[in-house]
């Protein structure tokens, strides 16, 4: 599984989404599943999946799938 796939899996698991959901199109609070509680679950998934510990500012910054990739890049998680 590459990092993009791991990130998608983290979104699906943390937000409790259907496998077929287009996660690239999601933005924070745009669906009922992505509320502040689910957001913290997502953060826990990202910490675990990529063996990092996100800064609070970065946690707040993750407002979409693309933004998550951008933030994770700061932690040396590479996306091709």
């Amino acid at each position: 599984m590459n990092n993009e796939q791991k990130l998608k899996a983290a979104f699906i698991e943390a937000l409790g989404l259907n496998e077929s959901t287009n996660v690239e199109a999601l933005t924070y609070n745009s669906i009922p599943e992505w509320d502040s509680i689910a957001h913290m679950a997502l953060v826990a998934q990202l910490d675990d999946q990529f063996d990092i510990m996100l800064d609070t500012d970065d946690i707040i910054d993750i407002s979409s799938f693309e933004k998550a990739k951008e933030v994770l890049s700061k932690y040396e998680v590479e996306f091709v």
Binding site: M40, A41, V43, A44, D47, D48, M53, T56
Partner: peptide
Amino acid sequence: LQYAARLMKP
């Protein structure tokens, strides 16, 4: 407290 909760939640 905040960081501890992050380790404990999972």
